[in-house]
Design a protein around this nucleic acid. Structure first.
Lengths: 137, 137
DNA sequence: TATTACGTTTACGTAAACGTCAACATATTT
DNA sequence: AAATATGTTGACGTTTACGTAAACGTAATA
């Protein structure tokens, strides 16, 4: 009866398994300032907050962001800057981010359309092959 | 009056400028099998086909694909495989690709929603600051 | 003719994002 | 007590996607 967790905690291998990343990666993310697990002695203890961050982080990666870009975004989320100037800069940054995402949306949609087009073309030629197979049987 | 172009052609710096990539990058893309410009003596002559490919290539990059993934996609587009087995494999590959893109779409949309949420929050705190500025004037 | 612009190949350098050890500590199981 | 599992910190290796510089060819321009 010493340390009751009180909150759910995760070890490095818990998160490692859940999100299918290596411990090495998790340590790197920490070194890059993206995660900030507590320590119990020497060992890393991750809280829910880290888990959420990790999820966002990986989503960012899938979108092609670098770790430092992701860092920027995280910082953006957390700035509780009382200063007006800071806030204005923040809004601007978020606008940039939004624009990039919108371009990415277009890119994805165009890629999907192309895949679809080519897919149909290929299917058609497959159908033709199968038709000729029937005849020759 | 020797070589009439007949088709529109581009030099390396033409494409370099149009798409804002360095010549070095274009040569790398060629080395990676993504572009295949003709040669006039020693110099690279790009045709429309290369220009289209470059556009697709860069779109792929924006989506976070590696050059070799893009190569796979290009190969996919071009397989005029008469063989049925080949075609089936191709269709499967395209399905994978489509799934990945759909996940990316979701990722982008979720990211956009989050940006929007945070954006509104920040705006609100900005409004509050400006309101208190008016009072104190 | 000398300079400038544009192109070439070859080759080494680099930043990012890990992988892959080594060498060690700690805790639990056998 | 010995082995096993899990964790730690270095530190060097690797791949990708170029950057950068050297050394050179060719063609138009001053």
């Amino acid at each position: 009866m010493s340390k009751e967790p009180k909150f759910k905690t995760y070890t490095i291998s818990d998160l490692s398994k859940e999100f299918e990343v290596t411990p090495r990666a998790l340590r790197l993310y920490e070194e890059s300032g993206l995660l900030g697990p507590k320590r119990e002695g020497n060992k890393r203890i991750y809280l829910e907050r880290d888990r959420v961050r990790l999820r966002l982080l990986l989503r960012g990666k899938r979108l092609g962001c670098t770790l430092s870009e992701i860092k920027d975004i995280f910082d953006m989320y957390e700035t509780k800057s009382g200063e007006k100037g800071q806030i204005l800069m923040l809004l601007e940054k978020m606008d940039d981010r939004r624009k990039k995402l919108q371009i990415q949306r277009q890119d994805v949609d165009m890629a999907l359309e192309e895949i679809e087009r080519v897919y149909q073309k290929i299917r058609k030629s497959l159908d033709e092959i199968e038709a000729s197979e029937k005849i020759n049987s």
